[in-house]
Computed example of a mutant assay.
Amino acid sequence: MPPAQFHVEPIPYDTGLAELRAVREPVFVAEQGVPLELEWDELDPDCHHVIARDADGHPVGTGRLTPEHRIGRMAVLPDWRGKGVGDALLRALLDEARKLGWREVTLHAQVTAINFYARHGFLPYGARYDEAGIEHQSMRLLLDHANAVETRDQALAALIGVVTGTRRQLDIYSRDLDPGLLDHPDLITALRQLATRRGEIRILVQDPTTPQRAHSALLSLAQRLPSAFQFRAVEEPGDQAYAPAYAASDAGGWYFRTLGHRFDGETRLDDRARARQLQATFDPVWERARPCSEFRALGI
């Protein structure tokens, strides 16, 4: 089946209100139960709006940038979900923010959409909260700069962004497969999707015994998809003393932690030079490391 045809472009609020209403009211008011008086606010006339239209020119998705440098009102009609419209809307809004010279953008994500925004480099911050009767999470993104990672939730979002953006090859350097992070269900889902689209995932580990003892979900996934995963254990004293941990992809995404036993670090999804540097660091260690025969005993 050919991909759905649509295009995204800016739309003025004053002349485009009817088209914006044709998407936002069915999604937010009728579907999600947001009161009409809350859906339209005093910021709307001053926002930068984008709209997605199908091949016949009918509106199918919307989004906006507020004067507070916040992305919002991201909505896609039900028949158009899962066809790339949301991704295209978000990219258009980020491009507009760059044209405006903004350094950072934020958003209030519905909790069910956190991983969608993580795929584009957004990291969560603060506690979750109720907005119009729906649970939300604040997220932010520094444009064209590395983003600081401080918490486990941010670390998870960073890795989801790196993994989902990988084209073919993903390299991970870890002390012990990071229990609570590399075996998180959302990350396992992202890794499974990469593996099933013929991705190649190389993982260097300093301590292979810990994930075995913990019955790591990542090892279970690799057992089911052995052609996609390779594991090696570092044994050279210098490699064993290496403190950082990182993930780097062939699409320019990376997440680097100076101390591998902590979540603190930095991430960016569009920095090919840094990603290549990390992969160049990874390759010689990979060649020196030994295949994890103890994992093969598990069928890997």
Rank of each mutant, 00 (worst) to 15 (best):
F116Q: 07
I160V: 13
Y125L: 07
V105C: 08
I160T: 10
A118D: 10
T151W: 09
S174L: 00
A155P: 12
A158W: 05
I172P: 10
P124D: 08
A132I: 05
L123Q: 06
A155R: 15
V162C: 06
D171Y: 12
Q110N: 01
T151H: 02
N115D: 14
D178W: 14
P124G: 03
L170R: 10
A155W: 15
R119S: 15
E104N: 08
N147V: 03
A109W: 04
A127L: 13
T166Q: 07
Q169T: 07
L156W: 10
D176C: 14
H136E: 11
D144R: 01
A148H: 04
E131H: 05
E150N: 11
A109G: 08
A155K: 15
D130N: 11
L142Y: 15
A132K: 09
L107H: 06
G133T: 02
I114T: 08
A157H: 07
D130S: 07
F122L: 11
Y129A: 11
Q137E: 02
D153L: 01
V111Q: 15
R128P: 01
A158N: 10
N147L: 04
A127K: 13
R119H: 15
W102C: 00
H136N: 08
I134D: 00
L170Q: 07
Y173N: 04
Q169V: 07
Q110W: 04
A113P: 05
F116E: 09
R128L: 09
L141M: 02
A132E: 13
L159T: 05
A157P: 05
I172A: 10
R140V: 03
Y125W: 14
S138R: 11
V149C: 00
Y129F: 14
L123T: 03
G165K: 05
L159A: 04
Y173P: 00
F116M: 07
E135Q: 13
E131R: 04
P179S: 14
E135M: 13
Y129G: 06
D171N: 11
H145G: 03
Y117W: 12
A148C: 02
P124L: 09
A113Y: 00
L142M: 15
R140H: 12
I160P: 02
